[in-house]
Amino acid sequence: MHFQWLTEQLPSDEVLATVVMDASRDTESGDRTVAARWSELRRSLDSQGLSKEMAAVLEEQALQPTRASGSHGRLIVAGESGILMDRLLLFAPRKDEAVLSIGPDVFALAREADDTVRYLLAEIDRTGADVTLYDSTSGAVGGEPHRESVDGEHDVLNKIRGGGLSHRRIESRVEDSWERNAETVASELDRIVLERRPDLLVVTGDVRAVALVQGALGAPAREITEHVPGGARNNGVNGAFETRVDEALEAFRVRRRGGTIDRFRQELGRNAMAVTGTNRVLDALRKAQVEELLISDEVAGPVSSLADVKVWVGDKPLELSMHRDEIRQLSSGDARARRADLALGTAAAVQDAGITIVYHDDDVLTDGIGALLRWDPSKPSGVVEPG
């Protein structure tokens, strides 16, 4: 799962504080509970050397309500210049954590990317559609989804009872109006899909109009379309429909992870373009060979099961090893110890590797970590032969 859309918002060479916390406020004491959670995180950051200025900015942000209901988490990243990111997390974390490091906690960003499905919701009737672009987690705290309406120019919309030539002509004009309006909606959806690159296009509304729109969509939009019945234009809050959308989004997340895991199993079985285990993954990261890093839920954290494991790093993110002497050979600077989860995440990010979190198939991962490779190390040229 690629997450450059998150990492590109953050500097990789500055000291940043990454906070992952339970932001749920569902009880009468919700504000006090969140404040108590923040106090624990503040003490942790103070012990790591957080500046008073950054602490004040973070505290003000962390104590602001998210306006989200139900159990949920929050990811906040801050630097000396202020708050750089504040996003909702679909699920409250098992444990709160705050990390001060050079660059962000990449595994925290990867979990946010794994939760997030950018989807375009089209609520369609025979005159047009209301179109909304969402992040499934509601995106940035306080942010609003992008909305627009699309209306066709054809207004002969209702069939009449009766018979005869006049009746058939009117029916033909009505059908033609439906089709022309559907083509207008489909053309606009095609444009938005190409420009905004959502993961899913969710269509709902009038059954006949939805079918006409789906039939008129271009291939890129049609390939990501999911029909979720029960929604309508101007229908207000519809809990049953929202539940169906949530189910469609979760099914997409499962498919997205599953495709990567299946490919990993296949390559591992062929002893080809996949490796597993800390040492082999470190070696692949060091060579900028990783296309996709796979980590178990426990490794992803918070708190990562690798947090207490130390690796040695040099001046550059890809200078990393389990052995200090190896770093002395690789780097012109001093070797220093770093948390393994932070070092591995940073190395993945700088080589534009994706990260997939493995929830139920982690038996395939040694040490809870594996990697799909960009090229086959068994080939002398370092490239994959065609075919």
Rank of each mutant, 00 (worst) to 15 (best):
A240R: 07
R168Q: 15
F264K: 04
F107T: 00
L365C: 13
R173D: 14
F3P: 09
A335T: 10
T346H: 05
S101K: 01
A232I: 04
H146M: 00
E291M: 05
D206T: 02
D22W: 14
A240M: 01
L200V: 07
E319A: 05
E291R: 13
D130E: 12
V384Y: 00
I369Y: 09
E267N: 08
D297K: 13
H360K: 10
A35M: 04
R173A: 15
S187M: 11
M21G: 04
V254L: 14
V210K: 01
G49R: 11
L293T: 13
I369R: 12
A129H: 08
K310G: 04
R270V: 10
P11H: 02
S305A: 11
S187A: 14
Q289Y: 05
V203F: 06
D115G: 11
R87K: 14
K95L: 02
I295V: 15
S296H: 10
Q64E: 13
M273V: 09
A129P: 07
L45D: 10
L217A: 13
R126K: 13
P65A: 04
G277K: 06
D125R: 06
R87D: 03
V207D: 14
Q48P: 09
E326D: 13
A211T: 07
A340D: 00
R263M: 11
V106E: 00
R37H: 15
E59L: 07
R338P: 04
L212Q: 02
R328Y: 00
G236F: 08
L330F: 08
G230E: 08
V207L: 12
D105N: 10
I369N: 14
A343G: 01
R280G: 10
S69F: 07
S51P: 06
V313I: 12
G49C: 12
D362R: 09
E14T: 08
V99C: 01
G218K: 13
G73L: 00
V202P: 01
F252I: 07
V131Y: 11
V364Y: 03
F91C: 13
L120S: 08
V15Q: 15
F91M: 15
P229F: 06
P11T: 03
